[in-house]
Amino acid sequence: MNCIEINNVSKNYKDTCALNNVSLKIEKNKIYGLLGRNGAGKSTLLNVITNRVFADSGEVLIDGIPSVENDKVQQKVYLMSEVTLYPDKMKIKDTFRWSGEFYSGFDMEYAMAMAERFGLNVNKTVKSLSTGYTSIFKVIIALSVNTPYVLLDEPVLGLDANHRNLFYQVLLEKYSNSPSAIVISTHLIEEVSNVIEDIIIIKSGKIYKNESREELLSKGYTISGRATQIDAFIADKNVIGVDTLGGLKTAYILGTLNRNKIPEGIEVTKLDLQKLFIQLTNA
């Protein structure tokens, strides 16, 4: 019951199918990575959950209650989206105050402390912030509202390396101190790979993979060596992609590896999430 349940949701925009019969469960106290290529349907999915976009069919249940036009259950979910919904001329500290009016759990003290850590001047207006600081100010609100479900759509957009580092630290601190369900939609897969527990890969509006990161990564491996050798080795295997460099070949394989059957000269390494993602979602 304590979860967001998405049942058979479809959404079309004119002739593009953004979501195609998507079913998914987002459980409490877990960090999810929502991964997908541009236009795969990530933002549409998050927008449907939060009632900003209406699905053509299917339903979303939040803690068992239909989410459409229901303010009471929507209070349990916060979506940091790519659009900034605060007035341009509003000062940051006022956006914090207003967030408190809408979300009773908003922690002003925490928000101000975070602004200080990120070096965000709360007397500036929404409009005057750079791309990076716009993301930061939205992230701070998302982490301060204390809702059981927090959805972050591209939270590190425009953040420099130092601020991204700080973001992951702050996120994990917050999550350790008061766990909630957190969904992070991002293109920076490598960075987020160790932070997330479960992975949702969405491809052309469909859920393509939905499982724990560890499980997914343990299902495959990478081998490299002389092209002729590799070709012989992969002949009967489930190959999801290959890279060639001169006479060297690297193959990405799904399946379990029999360590006793590796020919000499072939090097085996694990799959990393980014490589796996690229191979799985290539056209």
Binding site: I31, L172, S176, N194, V195
Partner: peptide, 8 residues
């Protein structure tokens, strides 16, 4: 978790 940026 925080210093190595890994899931708790």
């Amino acid at each position: 978790s925080v210093s190595y940026k890994i899931n708790p």
